[in-house]
């Protein structure tokens, strides 16, 4: 019953991973935190990410809408080869 390396890895990895995560679940947190501070802190972190990505994507959409609109002088009609699907 040749257990090749791949089988071994599939078995071992979850065991190792869970043993690392395990202590995090068990210990009673001695570090008393203030809910409000932690929750709002996490919220600001989420907002920073949301707004950076937002700025990037809105910028791209604005550029695309402005640059490739039909009435844009620079937008010379170049026929794409038909059937280019």
């Amino acid at each position: 019953m040749g257990i090749s390396l791949r089988h071994a890895v599939i078995l071992i990895v979850p065991v190792v991973v869970f043993s690392i995560i395990q202590p995090a679940f068990a210990q009673e947190s001695d570090r008393v935190i203030i809910n409000r501070v932690e929750v709002w802190g996490l919220f600001y972190k989420g907002m920073v990410i949301a707004f950076t990505i937002g700025a990037v994507i809105m910028g791209v959409i604005a550029y695309v809408v402005f640059r490739f609109r039909e009435s844009n002088p620079k937008n010379i009609p170049r026929g794409l080869p038909e059937g280019h699907q």
């Binding site: 695309v64 809408v65 490739f68 609109r69 039909e70 937008n75 009609p77």
Partner: peptide, 8 residues
């Protein structure tokens, strides 16, 4: 939309 001639 990139590179197209968009008719709004």
């Amino acid at each position: 939309m990139w590179g197209g001639r968009i008719r709004f």
